[in-house]
Design a protein around this nucleic acid. Sequence first.
RNA 1: GCCCGGAUGGCGAAACUGGCAGACGCAGCGGACUUAAAAUCCGCAGAUCCGAAAGGGUUGUGGGGGUUCGAAUCCCCCUCCGGGCACCA
Length: 887
Amino acid sequence: MSMAKTEKSAAASAAAPGDTSPNGSAAPELRYNPAEIEARWAERWAAQPDLYAAEPHSSPRPKYYVLEMLPYPSGVLHMGHVRNYSIGDALARYMWMQGYNVLHPMGWDAFGLPAENAALKNNTPPRQWTLQNIAAMKRQMNRVGFSYDWQTEITTCLPDYYRWNQWFFLRMFERGLAYRKKSKVNWCPQCATVLANEQVVNGCCWRHEEQTVEQRDLEQWFLRITNYAQELLDDLAKLEGWPEKVRTMQRNWIGRSEGAEVAFELEDWSAVPEDEEKARKGTAILPPRTVAKGMGTKIAVFTTRIDTIYGATSLQLSPEHPIVRQMCAMNAPLEEAVAALLEQQRKAREAGDVGAIEKHGVFTGHYAFNPFSGERIPVWVGNYILTDYGTGAIMSVPAHDERDYEFAKKYDLEIRVVVLPRRPGDPEGEPMLPFTAEDSLLINSGDFSGQGCQEAQHKMAAFAQEHGFGKPTVTFRLKDWGISRQRYWGTPIPMLYCEKDGIVPVPDSELPVLLPGNIEITQQGGSPLARVPDFVNATCPKCGGPARRETDTMDTFVDSSWYFYRYCDPRNDRAPFDSEKIAYWFPIDQYIGGVEHAILHLIYSRFWTKVMRDLGLVRNDEPVERQFAQGMVIRNGAKMSKSKGNVVSPDEMIAHYGADATRMYSLFAAPPDRDLDWQEDGVAGISRFLARVYRFLMKHGGRGSEARAAHGSAPAQVSAATQALQRKLHQTIRKITQEYAGRWHFNTCIAAVMELVNTLTAAEPQIAAGEVPDAVLADVLRSLTLLLAPFAPYLAFELWEHLGQTGNLLRAPWPKFDEALAKEDQIEIPVQINGKLRAVICVDADAGEDAVRDSALASEKIAAALAGKEVVRLILVPRKLINIVVR
RNA sequence: GCCCGGAUGGCGAAACUGGCAGACGCAGCGGACUUAAAAUCCGCAGAUCCGAAAGGGUUGUGGGGGUUCGAAUCCCCCUCCGGGCACCA
């Protein structure tokens, strides 16, 4: 039989993947047909529900919990999902092969607004719409071949999940961690609901980028995340396996500021305001401690620069400060002016640039006393003073704060320097105001003059505390988490309102509070549940009288704050989970998702874990050991979106090139933490590569498998081709194994596999000539299949079987590399003269320095280049290079 | 304004600790096979200059300076792009 001829005709007839043109002369065994292979394996995998199941927590294997962020079931898988899950899947498969007991679950973040919008649009009930989408996306995920254990699947919109949201809420309520208060809330008219601070982006709704968020006063439920602000901040230091970027973002979000609170006493209410012009300048120093003139009303300010308090020349209050309200009540012109300031604030917020608001203010006509100096200073209202940070009031120190300086210039307020406007050692000169640096000395500051700023900060705060008008304090930017949503498709908040007993929690025995099924979704504002009498009308568990149910539902971020615990015990109907199972699986070893969740989801999750720990449910302080933020998938330089028309559908890619090529390209095109520019030609390239591998194994795999029995009895004398092949194999295994342990640069792993295949195909003549022992060939092909398995599982399973392997590929041990076999025996050493490459010499890998030097100097090119030059110095870096410095 | 990233051929990228810049792939060019095309296989390939060629020179990692025998990599300054925060007192 003419082997060459067979090969030729087969190669000639190999069709492109997706090429549907009939080709009668095809040799089917040599043609890579991903559609056929993948369909066959998908069917086989589907028939094995335990294929990806984790072993119980009694397993002797070390555990590994790898998790990808659960998706919202929009109905279509997009490329970002494919990339995210391909990373997790490669890792899960690798860890299985490394012998770990792997938990690799998937679920659905299934509550949320789109279901209600879809209901309005298509007249489909949210539940039905959501469950249909889940089915569709699950089908797509299985088509890609992700290794999820569907037996642990969770769906947050089903009562067996959300009842535990309610249960947790009740536990928090019992501990005062859930409370109700009236507050100004962010309201999105399009969503017709409240948004958390975290969901407001540039003053607009996170879902409706064009929609300005309004402010409304509503009674809302809050979770006291601020109780954990300090711990959330402190524990960031422990999260060494998290991207620095994510930790920084959280640190900024928590926004801890150390400073002091100081109370300024208001001058007697009844004092007649002087005329405004005079008032502005009214900073005449009164005798110290003229508190007799005070009236007992105090205005607390928060400052990080108490050391500059002798330079305070006015107080600035937020337009919404309670005292301002009182002042306005007896002063109509002031009320009008304050209303104007409020309006400016509102407009700025709606324009999304609170930071750029033009500063305006108004003098209230009142004065307050500086508790340190006793000085009488005017009280103003400023539109740049935030209501909900600190105390909503500040002391204005124009000389040492940029904002205060700007304001004082505009309104001609006194600017008094109390910090030497230069550092020790700086040349004297005109002060550059405002001077905000803290590494200087106080002046004009009573007994504190001459002290360093930072020293004075501590001493002055302590002084204030001793004398009862202040104290050191810490302020956080983080605010409590408002979770009430005036929506239907969410977890009902398990609370009742009884006329007699007030706010009453639903007893545990009555959980879950079920979301009613038949409800008409309309565009009216307010909670849809309020329009369902059967839902609203309830009985008070305390008095048995009539009660009204809470009709708001929970923010969906509640659902995703603890879902990963439920995967460990998904069907438990007595508790959210068995704590022993959690103790085994937690913390999550590796969490993978988009950086867009760096703040919201990841901070809520950390908070929830700490609450659960304090409830005695879990022992871990943090949910996630290592976090990975993958880059976005973009195309033509922009994020994929319908409006830009640059969306690539995974379905189309898979139909054309196969799932293996699609997911492998998503790992090859860029390192996983960087943005990935999708180029379809690249997918075609991967597909070609897989076809090469397939063809090679179809041709030579059989021979290798027959020789398995002879494995280990390789001849003592190996050919150069054999040695080169083995060397490349072991270098590749080493490289890839190191990447998994380190940076996860799967792009270079795949490149390494390509190089291995290039080496293999280059050696094809020698292999065909029998110069490579079958045992070696079998080892190479077997290892190649294993290396490929995490990236292209369908093809790997197919090849595994073709190689005659009978064990489960998923649990086949990851190949081990042998340093001795990976070692090069000859290495190339670049030789530079004055840092410029002049020659490359080839030496024995273990040649001594003298031998290498001699060899370099003996090189013709080097000898020629050195002629007539004086060698000043010779640098030899073993195994790296030689640099000869000449004159 | 502040805090993170990033910038390397025509393109995606590689070079992990300062040591041959451009691995691997895409697109391209040349060749083999073919009646032809596709597919496949082999080869070339940063730019520029000299040379018929073999080969060689110069230059080159956003820009400018510096440290070093040697810099994509370290230091200083600047530009541009992406992201986060933003009157947080």
